[in-house]
Every structure is written in C-alpha cells, then in structure tokens.
C-alpha cells in the first residue's frame, strides 16, 4: 500500500498473560476498540512502527504529486487542468495531515524530510513509474487512488487517534480523486481509436504496479501479525488486493478495456475474480531503487528542499524581527 513492507520488532505477538500490567492495559484498550492518544503510554515498538508507517504514507502523498504534477501544464483543457491542480493540491494536504500525525509521536517534520531525501525512509513503489501520456492521469486516479482508498478506508478505525483522524479527512477527499480519474478513462475509452489505444496502454502499464501497492502476501508475516494486534494494520495484503480486483475488473469491462491478465476472470465457485500475481521480482527491484523513476523522484524532492532553503530561513528571520519589534514597542 502507501506504506509497504513495514517491519515491526519481529518478535511475534505476545499474549495478554505475557504482558506487564501497563502493556496489558494498553492492549486491552485497543482490543475494546479504544483509541491511543499522544500522551498515553505506549510500547516503544508501537511508537516506532507507527512513525515508520505514517511517515512512509506521508512521503508517498508528497512524492505522489510528481507523476501527476508532470501533466498539469499539459492538460488538454482548462477544466481538466483546474481539476488536476486541485487533486494534486489535495495530495499535498494529505501529506501534511500525516506528517502532523507522525509528529505527535515525537519525531520532527524536518527529521522525516531528511530521512526521505537521504533515501533512508521509503515511499510507495507505485510513484517510481513514469506518466507517459494524458491517459495515465486517468489510470492513476482510477487505479492508484482506487487502491489507496481500499487501504485507507479501514485505517479510519486504526487505534492511534491522530492517525485515524487524519485518515477520516483523507478519505473524504479521495473519492473525488478516483472519480476524476475514471471520468478521464471514460472519455478516452469512448474517444477516437488513438485515444482508446492510449487508455488501454495506460491500463496495461499501471495494472501490475497497482496490484503491487498492497505489498507481497503477508499471511505468514510476524510483522503483520503484530501490526494487526495493535490495529495499525486492519486487513491482510492479499485480502485488500482481492477486494481491489473484484471492484476494478467490472469497471474495466464497463470501459471496454482489457485487463492485461488472461487469467483474470470471475470465479463462480469462490465468488471472486481470479487473477495472476504481479511480478514480485520487479517490485523488490523498484524498492531497491532500480525503478524507472526512483532517481528522478528523489532528485526532484532534494532540489525542492535545497532551492527552498532561503525561503524557509528568510521567513523565520522575518518572523523573529517582527517579534522583536513588537516586544520593543510594548
């Protein structure tokens, strides 16, 4: 998902009996559906895991602006341009909500930014793919935001209060994103032959990477078991991926487009769509930094940070001067 491959303590889930009273009270509160708030006691692993997960999610929202920002100046109409601009601005907002949620856990925004820029912290693999044509704006909204929604909706019930509240805000805004993408796909799929081909090509390129967004199967993973006990992960990766395919396959059919997977068919017995796993070797390779755009994305973020330094510093100096002048006048 937007947060992929989050590793926890790796020690396996403790039972309530094995816990000290403080930790037991904490776990019992989570089991009962209660929320953990910033000043509450929490196990170190919970805090660390959440910082990694929320941070990775925030970075994904920020880096995710780049592939779409790429088309703002080249949108086919003024209306499409305004819509895309609003969508990309929303993603900046999502990044900010999430950074603030992470900050309540005792990490600073600048620290998280530094860890993104140095490559120490990750963002979703999906944003390391290029957006080659206007149809990609359709495919990204429809598939990438669609997959993000699958994961974010259940996270509104996550155990950490500030994270859950950020998710509520984000989810309210996401369905606009998916719909504007699907709207572009409808236009393209019903347009000229050349447009239809572009739409099909965009689906071909984004299908596999969208399935990868959910991360590899984690049915056996101790990390995931711990995250699920803490309710910072609500569903298994496979469960969400299946839900995504079940929702998306009929939509592709409606568009008259073909999912690039011959095995993708409705299975009467299971009541779900069968589908082939994406290329996991490619996924791990992208995570290692070898995707088509990893270098571009990090360079763009580093450049933005470096070029903005004088503005950040200048505004702080200005604020300090104004504060001093105000004090002197009192």
């Amino acid at each position: 998902m937007y947060a992929q491959m989050i590793k926890s303590t790796g020690e396996g889930v403790k039972s309530l009996d094995e816990m000290e009273p403080q930790e037991r009270a904490f776990q019992e509160r989570i089991n009962a559906g209660g929320k953990i708030e910033p000043k509450d006691w929490m196990p170190e692993g919970y805090r660390k895991n959440l910082i990694r997960q929320i941070g990775q999610h925030a970075h994904s929202e920020i880096v995710g602006q780049l592939p779409e920002g790429n088309w703002i100046t080249r949108a086919p109409t003024l209306e499409r341009k305004a819509i895309l601009l609003a969508k990309v601005q929303d993603e900046a907002g999502h990044g900010l909500y999430l950074y603030c949620a992470a900050e309540t856990l005792g990490v600073t925004r600048d620290q998280m930014t530094r860890d993104l820029l140095s490559g120490k912290m990750k963002y979703s693999s999906i944003f390391n793919y290029p957006t080659l044509t206007w149809a990609d704006m359709g495919a990204v909204g429809w598939l990438v935001d669609g997959a993000a929604i699958m994961n974010q909706v259940p996270l509104q019930r996550t155990s950490y209060g500030p994270y859950a509240r950020a998710m509520v805000r984000i989810c309210k805004e996401e369905s606009f994103h998916q719909r504007q993408g699907f709207d572009i796909m409808m236009k393209m799929a019903n347009g000229t032959e050349a447009q239809r081909k572009m739409a099909q090509d965009a689906l071909n390129r984004f299908w596999g990477p969208s399935l990868m967004m959910f991360g590899p199967s984690d049915a056996e993973s101790v990390h995931s078991a711990q995250s699920m006990a803490w309710k910072i992960k609500m569903n298994s990766n496979d469960e969400l991926r299946q839900k995504f395919v079940d929702q998306t396959a009929p939509q592709a059919e409606y568009l008259g487009l073909t999912i690039p997977d011959e095995t993708c068919k409705f299975n009467e017995e299971t009541g779900h769509y069968d589908f082939a796993q994406p290329d996991w070797d490619e996924f791990f390779d992208v995570l290692r930094g070898n995707g088509p755009c990893n270098t571009d994305r990090l360079e763009a973020r580093n450049k933005a940070w470096d070029d903005g330094a004088w503005v950040r510093e200048g505004l702080m100096a200005h604020a300090a001067k104004k504060r001093a002048a105000k004090l002197a006048a009192e």
Partner: peptide
C-alpha cells in the same frame, strides 16, 4: 480543532490553514 501545521508566524499559519484545512 482540525489539525496542525508549520509556519514561521501567526499570519502565515492562518494563510496555510486556509489552504490546508478549508479547501472545501
């Protein structure tokens, strides 16, 4: 309370809040 943000001073915090928290 709707959330938080970073800003150099109060004036800028209000402007940023407008952009981040009142887009709709």
């Amino acid at each position: 309370h709707v959330g938080s943000l970073h800003a150099a001073d109060a004036e800028m915090a209000i402007k940023n809040a407008r952009d981040v928290y009142t887009r709709r």
